[in-house]
Structures are given as structure tokens and as C-alpha cells.
Amino acid sequence: MKILVALKQVPDTETKIKVAPDGCSLDLGDVKWITSPYDEYALEEALRLKESREAEVTAVAVGGDRAKAVLQSALALGVQNAVLLKSEHTDDPTAIARTLAAFAKDQAFDLILLGNKGFGGDNACVGPMLAELLGLAQANVVTRLELVDAGFRAEREGDAGTEVLEGTLPAVITAQRGLNEPRYANLKGIMAAKKKTIAEVEAGAQASLVTVQALELPPTRPEGRKLEGDPAAQAAALLGLLRDEAKVL
């Protein structure tokens, strides 16, 4: 069984976002980079299949040299292969999906795993786009995955509750928190990873179908009002204000 795990390097979730002088991109100055938390669930699922089914796992990332860090972490956790698809062009999700599809299309992966969303563009769409571009089944925002016969059975977060879906392999699966509990790398893994190489492939240009023209911070909220009195008085005052001033009740 061959598995591909697509990883995205994203700003740490505690990062305070600042806009760069160009007015349309992120100021990278103070950013600490991590692997997208959702991709960690995808990676863990791949590692479990590596152990239970002797799968061969390839980790892939799209980006510049900086993105090698996420591949290095994946190697430390035990993936056999790591590939950097070199591209400085990582803003439009369609371009990312096309880059990944171009890499994956001739390699007969049985399963492609990735997080259900990154942190950044927040379009949460690369998985489904990749599935469509490759003509594969998808299960998106998955909290449980089971491989059965020549297909899969997955649970995903739907609108009316948990959707149980069945599909064929190969498939694209996007991971949601709850799918598993990701492991940490141990020293042995980290040392072993240092001896492994990250393959680098020129990704080629992909057109951006949507481009960011301006990036702005949300408007700051005016300091609110603190309500005084005992709990009953505070409660009455609050409901009055919500109804008559804010008009939200």
C-alpha cells in the first residue's frame, strides 16, 4: 500500500498576525512556523497504516526551503520518503491542489491524506480539489477511518450529525481532530531523520485563480461597558441593554 501525506507549513496558532508593508501579505518577521495541526492527524493516520499494513508513506510539502522543516519532522516520525515541491507560489489553493495533483497522478497512491484545513488562507479546499483533479473518492473532515476490502468507511462531521460514508480506493481523506492522537518524535527518530534526504522537485508555475489584493486586521472593538451591582442587578441590566441598546434579543 502506498500512502501520500500532504503537509502544510503554517504560522504557530499563537502567532499575532501583522500585515506586511505591501498591504496584502503577512509580515513574516515574528512568525514561528509549525506543521498545520490538522496535518498532524493525517500524518499519524498514515504512520498507523505503515505499522499495521506495511504501507510505504511519502510526505510532501509545497513551498520554499523553509518548508523542509515540516518534512524533516515527518521523517523523524517515521515516513520513508519526503519530497519538497519547490514553489514560492503558495497563496492560491487551486494552484496548490494542481501542484499536488501533478506530483501524485502517476504514482499510484492508494490513499492521500491531509488535514481538513491549514491555517492561513482558511479555504479548507485543497483535499476536495485534489480528489476532483485526480478523479478520486473523497472523505472530508474525517474523525474515523477504516479500510475495508477495496474501499474505505469513514465518519465525517456533517450538518445533521456524523455522516458515515463508504467509498472506493484510491481516495483523498482529510483529517479532523479526533481521528487519532498524534505521537511525538523520539530522539532516535530525530537522529535517524538527519541521515535521510528530502527530494526536491521543481513544481512549475500554476496560475492563481484568486489573488489577495489587500490584507487588513479586523477593526478593533471599542472598550465595552462593565455592569455593576449584585448578580441579579447585573443580569437585569445586561438583558435590558441587549434588548434595547444592542437590539440583539
Partner: peptide, 20 residues
Amino acid sequence: LTCVRPVYAGKAFATSAFHS
């Protein structure tokens, strides 16, 4: 079409243009 949308989990808003 142009759109405004939250990015970085709502820590910023992007104005984006389509080219398709």
C-alpha cells in the same frame, strides 16, 4: 467577482479578486 473573507482564523481579513 471580488470578495472579503476572514483568513488566519479571523485574525485578519483579505480582499481577493477572481481571475477565472
